[in-house]
């Protein structure tokens, strides 16, 4: 189990800094946003599991050849009052890390649900149904904004008066298709998960970086879905027009999103390699420490 603990520590360190930095700097994610999102999820999940698994396997080292038997052995030793303090501290560290991460996920889910509920109440009183677009709501306001409030079956796409004045009918179609994609593909679940990861590790720059990148990739994914029914040039025009009105940083992000529309998508073989690597990142260490037979055969 000592080798396992060492291996998990190495994995945790790699996934906490160099691997996400490489992914954040890479250019290919803009050409394969769905694939890049799989990679980000694998990094976050495998990183979290390795972070918990490293102290856990160190704690149970000497009580069994694999995690299950080792944990059973340690629990028996604790009950009998024979467990060393070091093992109990390591076990507590692993348990607290797990609780910390899960706790932040739960708190974030509750917070976001409450904020969405409040926003939905405001919308109900302050917006009106769009005269022709089914399901779309209109708010009076000169800032050109379009967004969706994801609430499962109660999701709403909201357009401002300023946006209706700014865009022509085709561009508006592009915006609505983009927002529909967010609702249909449940992008809000991903955003909340990475929001929770960031709130659990607030001083950890990679968590902030990951949240930002995931948010940007989700926009690209929604663009790609909209492109099935909307010409690239129309979508690019809509992105430019809305982006220009906001801040410099939102204009820059809009320019990146428009520019990628003319780049070829990543080759299928490269996408498959990333997905396979991501699946392996999560499953191999987990199976290694959880499956007694595998761990017994491997050391």
């Amino acid at each position: 189990m000592l080798e396992t603990a060492a291996a998990l520590t190495v994995i945790a360190v790699l996934l906490a800094w160099p691997v996400p930095m490489l992914l954040a700097r890479a250019a290919w994610p803009a050409r394969a946003p769905a694939t890049a999102l799989v990679a980000w999820q694998a990094i976050a999940l495998a990183g979290g599991l390795a972070m918990i698994g490293a102290p856990l396997s160190l704690a149970v080292a000497g009580y069994g050849d694999d995690l299950v038997r080792g944990l059973a052995g340690l629990v028996r030793a604790i009950v009998a009052g024979r467990a060393p303090a070091s093992a109990m501290v390591l076990l507590a560290v692993a348990a607290l890390l797990g609780l910390w991460l899960v706790g932040h996920l739960v708190v974030t889910l509750v917070q976001v649900a409450r904020q969405r509920r409040r926003h939905a109440v405001l919308l109900q009183l302050l917006s009106s149904a769009h005269p022709t677009r089914a399901g779309a709501r209109v708010i009076e306001g000169s800032a050109p904004v379009a967004y969706c409030l994801p609430r499962g079956s109660g999701s709403a796409t909201v357009l401002s008066r300023g946006l209706l004045d700014l865009l022509d009918a085709d561009e508006l179609d592009a915006v609505v298709h983009h927002e529909d994609a967010h609702v249909r593909q449940r992008h809000d679940i991903l955003l909340v998960a990475f929001r929770a990861w960031h709130s659990a590790l607030p001083r950890f720059p990679v968590a902030a970086l990951a949240e930002g990148r995931v948010a940007e990739l989700v926009e690209m994914l929604a663009d790609d879905r909209a492109r099935r029914s909307i010409a690239d040039a129309v979508l690019a025009r809509a992105i430019h027009r809305v982006g220009e009105v906001g801040s410099a940083s939102s204009a820059a992000a809009a320019a990146r999103r428009a520019a990628r529309l003319s780049a070829p998508p990543l080759a299928a073989s490269e996408r498959a390699a990333v997905v396979l690597g991501s699946v392996a990142l999560v499953t191999v260490p987990t199976l290694w420490i959880a499956l007694p037979a595998l761990a017994g055969a491997g050391g």
């Binding site: 969405r116 405001l122 800032a143 994801p150 909340v192 902030a208 906001g246």
Partner: peptide, 26 residues
Amino acid sequence: HMAELMHDVLVDSGDRRAVLERFVGG
């Protein structure tokens, strides 16, 4: 109340980022 709603929509404060999905960032 309209200002409260628009604040949700326009401001990219970290703790509210996951509440709604904008067409272009806030």
